[in-house]
Design a protein around this nucleic acid. Sequence first.
DNA 1: ATGCCGACAGGATGTCGA
Length: 260
Amino acid sequence: MKIATWNVNSVKARLDTVLAWLKEASPDVVCLQEIKTTDEGFPADAFESLGYNCAVHGQKSYNGVAILSRRPPEDVVRRLPGADGDDHARYIEAVIPGDSGVVRVASIYAPNGNPPGTERFSYKLDWLERLSRHAGRMLAFEENLVLTGDYNVIPAPEDCFDPNAWLGDALFQPESRAAFRRITNLGLTDAFRACHAEPRSYTFWDYQAGAWVKDHGIRIDHVLLSPQAADRLISCSIQRKVRGWEKPSDHVPVLCELVI
DNA sequence: ATGCCGACAGGATGTCGA
């Protein structure tokens, strides 16, 4: 089963690009982030015509996540437990049937959190803590679990071109990295790092300041696997070339293949 | 030291992203 994650930065503005990549890569499951539209505005027809079912958790203008799946998703959960007042659409989870068992997949869009020292930053840390608690509960099932999306965390210095340039940024704050480590330390495997040690492996390049041309990227889109899923890991790749396509998102897809 | 670019809502330009 091929499972992908992609922060598309508006599914409407990116529709042609997303469809082109789906046709080329043919993933079985796709976790989208920053769809930037409501459930009603989601272009489900276009994905259905390619053979995908859509589970959507959208909101107007900002955020918004979705899961596309060739097999119909089951047991869809549209919010991250732990804060009734949180109205940001940043989490959706579903159980996907495979040929040899099922996998629970979550599409995650963690808060940006800039600038540090504000309530936006504490919201980020609180949100990641809620994700950690939820992940701990799901890991107790000892099942195939894939928690993937835009974590908005640069885990380590080698995950960005110039660590000094990111020292003051919420994505690289010690508290942000510690929150990410608390999640992986529950027993989750970073699928990309389990397969690749190469430096300069990035998933995001800013639109500004020629970041793509200069390869000034960061790795913030992650695929985290439960032990059961990690045992089924075949490969994980960053779809770097997509950043060079017409009208690209500032993020590229990450594609992970599992024996499920 | 700040903006750079791009999308959104709305109908000008401010907000947000990372």
